[in-house]
Design a protein around this nucleic acid. Structure first.
Lengths: 107, 107
DNA sequence: TCGTAATATCGCAATATTACGATGATAAGT
DNA sequence: ACTTATCATCGTAATATTGCGATATTACGA
């Protein structure tokens, strides 16, 4: 009891839920915003900018990364993160398809 | 420890996270899909269609409702649910604004 | 080589979410 | 009045998420 029963849902529903989970924490939204606004790369500036511990930021980054939304590459001892914009667009399209399909109204 | 520190983030980040949370569970995505596909109203058909208990479905409905996404009205002993499409559009716009703003690429 | 900076990971505590049975409330039909 | 149907809520167990300190790991510069 207590665990989401993924097998009960269509792939489409599970996929949208997984995408949404990335955005479902304000720290991750803030990270994505920061990365995109800097245009260039970033590293541990996020720790200073956002104010969470380094361990926590790193954890959020890996959640975002697991969803395929980040590209990261080491430049010396620093790691440069940026958006995987192709994947980002896939996300956008999936969400929009869902939004467009849902337009009922009866009450 | 362990609780999301909402005060650390901008209103915008918190708002997007709150919206995303509605979609971050496949049952809620399935519910929204079902309601919109039926075009008309529904009630406890969701319990049969999705296969979760009535208590659980009701709980998910209230999460969706708290976000302002549902309109419900009792017709006798049955409750008719449908989408609040204005609010739904607001959601869509907020997500899209976020998506559009994030277009960096450096790696 | 040694110390330091940057990042990732482990382990744990605190909190949140998910799911369900039981119970309550309301309305319809008998 | 009694039963049944429909939905909400309460209480609770199971599980997941969040956050951080401590500890690796790797790369750089002195």
């Amino acid at each position: 009891m207590g665990a989401t029963k993924h097998f009960m849902y269509t792939d489409s529903c599970n996929e949208i839920a997984n995408i949404a989970k990335v955005f479902a924490h304000p720290a991750r939204v803030a990270i994505l915003k920061y990365i995109s606004e800097q245009e260039g790369c970033i590293c541990n500036d996020l720790v200073e900018d956002i104010g969470l511990s380094q361990a926590t930021i790193s954890q959020h980054l890996s959640v975002i990364g697991d969803a395929g939304l980040l590209q990261g590459r080491f430049v010396g001892k620093r790691k440069c993160y940026c958006l995987n914009s192709d994947r980002f667009k896939e996300f956008q399209i999936l969400m929009n398809v869902f939004f467009i399909k849902t337009t009922s109204n009866c009450c």
